[in-house]
């Protein structure tokens, strides 16, 4: 959030209130206020794709507002007509007639001279997992197989602690370089990769998923991502080459244990 910009926007809107402008000016002011808010008020800036969508919605809403009452319709029409015909607005009209073509020309210029951006693709962050994966020749059913050591949490806390400990070892041996000490996806090497490593502290990552999903992602890594998650720029290794099944389940236990989160429970049909 960029507080200064927000305050400036609010100040302009408040100032406008005292000027008692027509409905058209109000609509335009609101449009630009939202535009400025999205582009400069929020830090980091909102991606263009989202800003475009926001502005489309705002446009529709403003149109709806202006046309929702006969009086406002009339007022808007009259002020538009006045703007184009009245002597009073001659200078602003000329300014607009000149400024808009200049703006268009500038747009053409900047779009023709900026370096094209590398091909971007909307990645699917949480692609759907397959129903089963093959792990070293064994089939793991991602929908129905639960973490075989999860039940120890209730049954045998000592054994559970051992598994978590083993998971801790696995994590520091393999994962800490990228996912970091705090599991916030900010490890030593994190800055060198795009997409950046997953942040397990974020409640929208592992806390939203069942453990089978994590098993799939850990075992198959970046190379095992489905097509919809292309480009396969993910540097996540396919850990099935290095880890045993038990180690993977253990490190999953550790991930949840360290972040104080719980895996999404399987829902049972009523």
């Amino acid at each position: 959030m960029n507080v200064l910009v927000i305050l400036a926007i609010i100040a302009v809107m408040v100032a406008l209130r005292f000027l008692k402008p027509t409905i058209v000016v109000w609509a335009i002011a609101w449009w630009f206020a939202v535009f400025a808010m999205a582009n400069y008020g929020i830090d980091p800036p909102v991606p263009t794709s989202v800003t475009n969508m926001f502005m489309a919605i705002v446009t529709i809403a403003l149109l709806a507002y202006v046309t929702a009452a006969e009086g406002r319709m009339r007022e808007a029409g009259e002020s538009l007509v006045a703007f184009f015909t009245s002597k009073k607005y001659f200078i602003p009209l000329v300014i607009m007639l000149v400024a808009v073509p200049l703006l268009v020309a500038f747009n053409v210029y900047s779009s023709m001279t900026t370096q094209p951006a590398p091909p971007a693709a909307g990645r699917t962050i949480h692609p759907p997992p397959p129903a089963t994966v093959s792990f070293k020749g064994r089939t793991v059913d991602l929908n129905n197989d639960v973490n075989p050591y999860r039940h120890l949490e209730d049954d045998d806390s000592e054994a559970f602690a051992q598994h978590v400990d083993n998971g801790r070892r696995v994590y520091y041996e393999n994962c800490v370089y990228c996912h970091g000490d705090n599991m916030a996806g900010d490890g030593h090497f994190a800055h060198g990769f795009n997409p950046i490593p997953a942040n397990f502290q974020d409640p929208t990552t592992i806390a939203m998923l069942q453990e089978g999903y994590l098993f799939w992602r850990i075992a198959k890594g970046g190379p095992g991502l489905p097509v919809e998650s292309t480009p396969w720029a993910s540097a996540m290794p396919a850990w099935e080459l290095f880890l045993s099944e038990e180690e993977i389940w253990d490190v999953i236990l550790f991930l949840y244990d360290f972040t104080d989160q719980r895996p999404r429970a399987r829902e049972v049909h009523e």
């Binding site: 538009l80 007509v81 184009f84 015909t85 009209l93 607009m96 007639l97 000149v98 808009v100 073509p101 200049l102 268009v104 020309a105 500038f106 053409v108 210029y109 023709m112 001279t113």
Partner: peptide, 26 residues
């Protein structure tokens, strides 16, 4: 690289024409 001047002038002029047209119509 193609020079941006031509398209800039073209689009600018078209927009101007549109603006003037609307004004004249109104």
């Amino acid at each position: 690289k193609p020079s941006p001047v031509g398209p800039m002038a073209g689009y600018g002029f078209l927009t101007l024409l549109l603006g003037v047209g609307i004004t004249a119509f109104m």
